[in-house]
Simulated scan of single mutants.
Amino acid sequence: MPFSAIICASQAASDSPDMFRATLHFADQALIEYQVRQVTEAGASEVMVVVGAVTQPLSRAVDRLTADGIRVTLVRDMVTLLREAPREGDFLLVADGAVVPQRFYRTLAASKDVSLLVVEDGATTAGFERIGPGQRWAGIARISADVLFGTLDMIGDWDLESTLVRAAVQNNATTVPVPVEEANEGRLAIIRSQAEATLVTQALLGTGTDNASVPGDAGAERYVVGPLAARLAPMLLRSQVPAVQVGVAAIAIAAIGTMTILLHWPMMGLLTLFLALVVGGTAIRLTLLARRASADRWIWIVPQAVSVLGIALAARQVGQGALGLYLAGLVAIATLALRMGRLPNVRPWAIATPGSAILLLVASAIAGYLDFGYQLAVGVAIVSLGDALIGRRRQKS
């Protein structure tokens, strides 16, 4: 069933009374941007943000969302909400400052009933609103159009989210429990200050999709680049370095590596290209955390593409130009197939990726046999790609 989203964003931050919680810096963006991206990813057809006032930081956040193709309507009063809210379909209500793991958005998006996400009452969940004995509202709810429009007329100056949640409870809403460990480990929270926003961001970066491996990672990118990038990302996050700047740095480092190869320093150039992959992997993790992977897709592609070019150029320095082209083509095919999801259920360690090829070539260069390293790398890449294709054919049969 289609649904719209209502996100509450009118409470002031506890450490900055002149600033809304919604505009606190969170995961390389304003908190409201993160929430909007979550409900959009869950399938919301329309997003309405209920605000107390339209400030410049809030307007800039909406402009950034609009630039990414996400339409957001700012609502300042109940009259506007009554006018803007569609009369058909349900609504996903999001609490002011709520950060909830994405899988629970998907759960409520798939629900057909009035539903409340709840968490067990305890020391780490005291900041959530109590809705009954031993239970607190965990920040998101699915409410029907009847509940919404039947409640708006009597809200007046009352708190919107609390009133709607109480109405859902009175309508015998289905409760969807969240393990209290999500709150204990910082993945479920009501953010009230910048310090809390930073702590929750770091908790999200250290778990789930934002840890050492990301979708499409295999070979050295998964087992070497990933862990290194996972260590580097929190340091950049604490410094509030945008993922886009990290991605640009990765491209610049890859370009330096390529120039180093052209200056007849192939091993130094290959090591620089590997560093570019680590920095690029860090940018990817920051992008995934911000739920901007589709908007910043170039961060995934460009550093690896430049690294593949560097692999081909380095081969010319040792008289293996043809093998360099073969190797670059093979790892490019494998990388594209992984990114496009064409190699499902393959063994990640068995895929020849740019990072894997570079590590093998560096090891050969250290031993003084870079020319032989290209021969070996091409053989490994052929076997790797053949194994992946055979495995894919077996899966189909």
Rank of each mutant, 00 (worst) to 15 (best):
L359A: 07
D371R: 14
T258L: 06
A255M: 12
R130G: 13
G156Y: 04
R238K: 09
L232N: 06
D217H: 11
L81R: 00
S59C: 07
V79P: 00
G280R: 08
D113P: 04
L205F: 08
A250I: 04
I311K: 01
I284V: 09
T207I: 09
D153Y: 07
M259V: 13
A365S: 13
R192C: 09
F104E: 10
L236A: 08
A357N: 06
A167P: 10
T23F: 01
S4Y: 00
A126C: 11
V119Y: 12
S397D: 07
E33M: 08
C8L: 12
P344W: 04
A229P: 00
A254T: 04
L323R: 11
I256V: 12
R76P: 00
L385N: 13
S14V: 13
G43E: 00
R60F: 09
V308Y: 03
T40D: 07
D210N: 14
L271A: 09
A305C: 04
L24G: 03
L237A: 14
D77P: 01
L359Y: 08
D159W: 09
W300L: 14
G368H: 01
G69Q: 02
I143Y: 01
G127C: 10
G391W: 03
G139V: 11
R130F: 10
V39Y: 00
L205T: 09
P344Q: 06
I333E: 10
S213C: 14
G134N: 04
A363Y: 14
V50Y: 15
H264S: 09
D296P: 03
L289S: 02
V331S: 10
S14K: 15
A218V: 03
T282I: 11
L31F: 01
L330W: 02
A22H: 00
T209H: 01
L74P: 01
A229I: 07
R339W: 13
V49Y: 01
L24T: 07
A61F: 04
D113F: 02
E182R: 04
M154F: 09
S16F: 09
L117D: 06
S213L: 14
G206S: 12
M154T: 12
T175E: 14
S384H: 13
V279F: 11
R339M: 09
I301Q: 15
L204I: 15
D157N: 13
Q194T: 11
F149Y: 11
E181A: 15
L164T: 05
G156F: 04
I70T: 13
A334D: 08
H25E: 10
G43C: 01
T207R: 15
L273W: 15
P344F: 05
V214M: 11
V178L: 06
G134M: 02
M267L: 06
R222G: 08
S14N: 13
V200D: 00
S45W: 07
G321E: 10
R392P: 05
